[in-house]
Every structure is written in C-alpha cells, then in structure tokens.
C-alpha cells in the first residue's frame, strides 16, 4: 500500500492567514505553552556527546557526579580572580577532552551569564565598591562611571557563576539522563528520593503533553484570542485538570506496581565497583577542592 504523504503546508506551524487576510495570532496561553514545551524538550533531549568517547565519558556516572559536585563546591570557595580563572581553565579542558559541543555549552551558559550580568551590573559602576574611574558620563547632575574596583569585583562575581554553570552543563552534556539517575542511585542518597526523582522526570513530559493537548484542543475551537479573565480561567482549568489526571495516574501506577510485587520497599542496584580511572578523577577533583578551599 502506498504511503500517504501530507501536503507540506500542513506541517507548517504558522499557516495562520484567515480568509480576509487578517493574521489569526496564537493566543497568549497557546503560544506560551507551545514555546515552553518545545524549550523543555529541546533543552533536556538535545543531542549531546553522552555516548561518545571522552574524558568524562570514561568515568563511572556516580564518580562523575561527585567529581563535578566537588569542583562546583571548590568554585564557591574561590576567593580571588586567579582561583576562578584556574577553575575556568579546568572547565575548558574538561569540555575539550570530553568532546562536548561548544555551541551547546555556550547555549546553556548564556542564560546564566545574561541574568547574572544584569543583576550585578550596578557593581561594575562602583556603586558598592567605589574606586578609580575608568570611563564615565554625566546623567543630569550625577556622574555614572565604570570603576577599576567595580569592574574587577563584577567580573569576579560573574565569572564565578559562569564557571559553576559550565561545570553543570558539561556534566549534563557528557552524561545521558538515565546515567545521571543511575549515578545518583549509587550515591548515599535515599533510594526513595532517587526513584521519585526519576519518576518525576518521566511523568513531567507526560503531563506537559496533557496540558499541550488541552491547549491545542482549545485552539482548534477558538479563533480569536481570548480575554484576560477567560485565559486565567482556562489556566486554572488546565492545571486543575492536569493535577486531577496526575492523581488518577498515580492510583493506576500504584495498582500496577503492587500487582508486580511492590511492597513499598525499594531495592537499588549497587552497580559495579569503581575502576582506577574513577578514583583518579575523584582524586583530581578533591585535589582542586583542597587547593581552592585553603582559605
């Protein structure tokens, strides 16, 4: 039987010209839902080098998580620009040797960079540190100027956040989601917590799909964008509906688990013992930590 092919225009998301040529814009809720759902899936399931060969990929996931965690804590202890640059160099080397896609790494770091730069922007102007003026301008009768001390302090604060974010991003880009949960289950974290975490992650996308479908069904029945009160009411409906479905799901899930012998006690696999490479990686991470935390 010949495969049925849909016309191309049906796959286009923005086939929104109405009969009289007026744009039928996506309503506020639908637009947000679709954007956020796409963002969430893209962010979590983007292709990375988790399965590839690289430095971090050769280390056990639980050792990888611990090592990156230790490096992050080490960055929090850093008290000088030199120490933060040292951590940045380590992060860059890890990214290179783990063959992490640099563009994806930048994409993950950029939001944190922009947020922190915005939040800490007054620091660069020496509002809290004073100091010698580098360059400035007058706004009415007030002088606004970048100061040497302000720039130094601001750069240190921002770069610390960026380096920490980059370590987290490298961990995620070099580790498959399933390995992250597997790695966590081998650490001294309660089994209940890691299992619940894994289930939350799995059902998150199921519930997101429910809300997305609710949005789509509404969109197919409503042409004009709704008024504020209606969209607020619809928000409450879709969330309430999702919560209700979630609780119903949980009942079904419990029955399914109990029918397979679940008694409420979790058994977590202990995995394989660490290899020499895992110990070497942990040793390196703790070495960096002790160097940075000496103050």
């Amino acid at each position: 039987m010949e495969e049925m092919k849909l016309p191309e225009w049906m796959g286009e998301a923005k086939a929104v010209k109405y009969l009289d040529g007026i744009d039928v814009r996506q309503g506020f809720m639908e637009k947000n839902l679709l954007t956020l759902a796409r963002f969430a899936r893209g962010f979590v399931f983007q292709s990375n080098n988790a399965a590839g060969r690289g430095l971090l990929q050769s280390v056990d996931p639980s050792a990888r998580i611990v090592g990156i965690g230790v490096l992050i804590v080490a960055c929090v202890f850093a008290r000088s620009a030199g120490e933060i640059m040292f951590a940045a160099a380590i992060s860059l080397m890890l990214a290179v040797f783990s063959r992490v896609n640099m563009l994806m790494l930048l994409k993950r770091i950029l939001p944190a960079f922009l947020l922190t730069l915005t939040v800490f922007s007054p620091v660069f102007f020496g509002f809290f540190s004073g100091g010698s003026e580098l360059m400035g301008f007058d706004v009415f009768s007030a002088r606004v100027a970048l100061t040497f001390e302000g720039v130094r302090l601001g750069a240190m604060l921002v770069s610390r956040v960026i380096v920490i974010t980059s370590f987290m991003a490298i961990l995620f880009l070099s580790t498959a989601e399933s390995d992250i949960f597997k790695g966590l289950s081998r650490l001294p974290v309660p089994g209940f917590f890691t299992t619940a975490l894994f289930m939350t992650f799995r059902y998150l996308f199921v519930l997101l799909k429910i809300v997305e479908d609710a949005g789509l069904s509404r969109k197919s029945r409503v042409i004009n964008p709704a008024k504020l009160k209606d969209t607020q009411g619809w928000f409450a409906f879709s969330v309430g509906f999702m919560v209700e479905r979630a609780f119903r799901f949980s009942g079904d899930l419990t029955s399914a688990m109990v029918s397979r012998g679940f008694t409420g006690r979790l058994k977590v696999s202990k995995g394989v013992p660490f290899a020499i490479a895992d110990y070497a990686w942990l040793g390196f991470s703790f070495f960096v930590f002790f160097i940075m935390a000496r103050a």
Binding site: A40, Y203, L204, L207, V211, V239, G251, F262
Partner: peptide, 28 residues
Amino acid sequence: EKTLEVSQLPVLSLASASVFVIMMLNFP
C-alpha cells in the same frame, strides 16, 4: 511514609511533575 504508605512513590512523583509543569506555565 506513614501517611501515604505504599502509594507514596507514585503520588509524590506525579505531584512533583505537576508542580514542575505548573512552574513552566505563565499565568496571564
């Protein structure tokens, strides 16, 4: 563990997933 008993794991996981999704939705 005491209050939710055997159903604790699915209930908590799905409630958490719901909150996660709610946090992603923008309220107009």
